[in-house]
């Protein structure tokens, strides 16, 4: 039951807005857009040697729902493993949960951004590891 309250709080007070150093090898950057409404979202993950996501930041130009989704997603992946982020699920839900609806593209934008950020991180890691291998 507390879950929905927590969620609503997220929408009211978005967290993790900002940018990380996009040139760092530890940072994966995902930039995605929603053609339906012209929203753009940049989401960055800072990942350490153990594959733990140490920090997550986002910058979204779009509607409130898109900003809120970004906030929720970054908060969920912080401190988690890369594997967790790849298989992102937002947990078991209490019964009878009812919340306002969300635009479809807003609900997927953050997820797509996470996937894109992880792909960018992998590419960087592969490039760094290539010469020593």
């Amino acid at each position: 039951m507390a879950y929905s309250d927590k969620l609503v709080d997220h929408f009211e007070n978005p967290r993790n807005m900002g940018v990380l150093d996009k040139d760092s090898d530890e940072v994966g950057t995902g930039l995605v857009g929603a053609p339906a409404c012209g929203d753009v979202m940049k989401l960055q993950l800072q990942i350490n040697d153990q594959g733990i996501i140490e920090d997550a930041k986002f910058k979204t130009f779009g509607c409130g729902s898109a900003i809120a989704s970004s906030s929720l997603v970054t908060e969920m992946v912080k401190g988690k493993t890369v594997e967790y982020a790849e298989n992102l699920e937002n947990g078991a839900i209490a019964e009878e949960l009812s919340l306002p609806p969300v635009k479809i593209h807003c609900s997927v934008l953050a997820e797509d951004a996470i996937k894109a950020a992880l792909a960018d991180y992998r590419r960087k890691q592969a490039a760094r590891n290539a010469p020593t291998a």
Binding site: E89, A92, I93, L99, P100
Partner: peptide, 17 residues
Amino acid sequence: SETFTTQVDGQNAVDLH
């Protein structure tokens, strides 16, 4: 009309305001 979706897994209802 406009099509929306849910925000969390297993959400059984949407509140339309």
